[in-house]
């Protein structure tokens, strides 16, 4: 009776089931990859939006608010180099130089871009009238794409005003 079964049924059924399970695995793997990618994209987007929010507060010089947001960022995403760079910028605006340097050290440990860290240090120095000794240096700071132009120009302006005040006080 067994032999009387149509050839196509048993083996085909067997083959079909085997293919189905392989396809399911493939689909599963593909789905997992897609979900992973979607989560990654969502995280990147969400992370980018959180950073953007802090950058906006910093642009408005709402530095205390920006610092609060960097703490929230840290709780949500863990400690990151970029977060520490933004915290350093807020500290620089608030003229809390020691805290600014500490944040930059932390940023270096957490893998922030060395060029960005170096630029922030340079802005801190510029804000104190240092690093402005030659027009070349000044142009370099102003033209740097590592921070928004207004960040660079503001630090330079603060430094120049400070320098002028010092010159005036030393000459009188």
């Amino acid at each position: 009776m067994r032999n009387s079964l149509p050839d196509s049924l048993a083996p085909r059924g067997f083959r079909f089931t085997e293919m189905n399970s392989r396809a399911r695995i493939r689909t599963g793997v593909l789905l997992a990859i897609l979900i992973g990618l979607a989560i990654y994209a969502w995280r990147q987007d969400s992370w980018g939006r959180d950073l953007g929010k802090i950058e906006n507060w910093l642009a408005m010089r709402a530095d205390r608010r920006a610092l609060k947001e960097t703490l929230a960022l840290e709780q949500k995403w863990g400690r990151t180099g970029d977060g520490h760079v933004l915290a350093a910028r807020a500290m620089r605006h608030l003229e809390r130089d020691d805290s600014c340097r500490e944040e930059l050290n932390r940023a270096a440990v957490r893998g922030a871009s060395p060029a960005v860290i170096a630029h922030e240090s340079r802005l801190l120095a510029a804000q104190h009238g240092q690093a402005l000794s030659s027009p070349y240096e000044l142009d370099e700071i102003l033209a740097s794409p590592l921070a928004p132009f207004s960040e660079n120009a503001d630090a330079v302006m603060i430094g120049l005003i400070r320098e002028k005040e010092e010159v005036r006080s030393n000459s009188s």
Partner: peptide
């Protein structure tokens, strides 16, 4: 400041500093 206003003509920064 001249450079700044050339770079960002609509900026409020110049008036702020003035």
């Amino acid at each position: 400041m001249k450079l700044w206003s050339a770079q960002e003509p609509d900026t409020f920064w110049i008036d702020y500093y003035a």
